[in-house]
Simulated scan of single mutants.
Amino acid sequence: MMLLSRLLRHYYRASHWPEYLAPLLDLALRLYVADVFFKSGLTKIQNWDSTLYLFSDVYQVPLLNTDVAAYMATAGELGLSVLLVLGLFGRFAAAGLFILNAVAAYSYYSGLSEAGLFQHFCWGILLAVLLVLSRGKWAFDTWLEKGFGLPVRR
């Protein structure tokens, strides 16, 4: 019984070691998702006429004028991606990209392959994780909270 107790203590102590990698995983998720959306925004800017055509004739964005939708999507992909990488207003950025991703998947649903739909689903899950769990040590939000004397919750 004493041996089992010692083994369990060592196991539980060692089981917390991966938690030290949490800031690195948080940063890696932020970089990956931001890269996907930032590149999409750059593609939209590179051929703006094509972007306007897609938003007017291909995508079916609900409730928005097609030009407004094109501008909002492009600005969101570029701006929110930068915020996400920096971890500055990170939850706001993750929520914004989550909504943008959901609207994109919905508005182009008929044109998406099963693999494309799965990709949007995976990005949505990663953004949801960042929205709920992201409070990495390597984020400006954490440093700002400390600077304002607010308690940083983990």
Rank of each mutant, 00 (worst) to 15 (best):
residue 52 L to D: 07
residue 60 Q to R: 14
residue 125 I to T: 08
residue 139 A to Q: 11
residue 105 A to M: 12
residue 58 V to Y: 10
residue 151 P to L: 07
residue 2 M to Q: 14
residue 6 R to M: 14
residue 49 D to Q: 14
residue 14 A to G: 11
residue 96 G to Y: 04
residue 93 A to P: 01
residue 94 A to N: 03
residue 122 C to G: 04
residue 137 K to E: 15
residue 14 A to Q: 08
residue 93 A to L: 06
residue 47 N to D: 15
residue 106 Y to G: 06
residue 50 S to N: 14
residue 7 L to T: 09
residue 64 L to Q: 12
residue 122 C to Y: 09
residue 88 L to F: 15
residue 86 L to W: 00
residue 53 Y to F: 14
residue 11 Y to S: 05
residue 130 L to K: 01
residue 41 G to C: 03
residue 86 L to E: 01
residue 133 L to P: 00
residue 129 V to N: 05
residue 96 G to Q: 05
residue 55 F to K: 01
residue 3 L to D: 15
residue 80 L to S: 08
residue 83 L to D: 01
residue 49 D to E: 15
residue 91 R to F: 00
residue 130 L to W: 02
residue 14 A to R: 10
residue 94 A to D: 10
residue 133 L to I: 05
residue 141 D to N: 05
residue 102 A to N: 10
residue 108 Y to C: 07
residue 26 D to I: 06
residue 77 E to M: 05
residue 138 W to Q: 06
residue 136 G to P: 02
residue 120 H to L: 06
residue 70 A to I: 00
residue 4 L to E: 15
residue 6 R to S: 14
residue 138 W to L: 13
residue 140 F to A: 11
residue 15 S to C: 13
residue 26 D to Q: 10
residue 141 D to K: 06
residue 91 R to Y: 03
residue 139 A to P: 02
residue 3 L to W: 12
residue 109 Y to F: 13
residue 132 V to Q: 06
residue 73 A to S: 08
residue 36 V to W: 10
residue 97 L to W: 07
residue 30 R to A: 07
residue 71 Y to I: 14
residue 28 A to F: 05
residue 83 L to W: 01
residue 38 F to I: 04
residue 124 G to Q: 07
residue 39 K to L: 13
residue 63 L to P: 10
residue 74 T to M: 00
residue 93 A to H: 02
residue 48 W to E: 11
residue 84 L to N: 09
residue 91 R to S: 01
residue 3 L to F: 10
residue 69 A to T: 01
residue 152 V to F: 03
residue 14 A to F: 03
residue 110 S to Q: 15
residue 130 L to F: 07
residue 96 G to M: 05
residue 33 V to P: 01
residue 121 F to P: 06
residue 91 R to G: 00
residue 3 L to N: 12
residue 10 H to W: 07
residue 16 H to K: 09
residue 95 A to C: 09
residue 112 L to D: 15
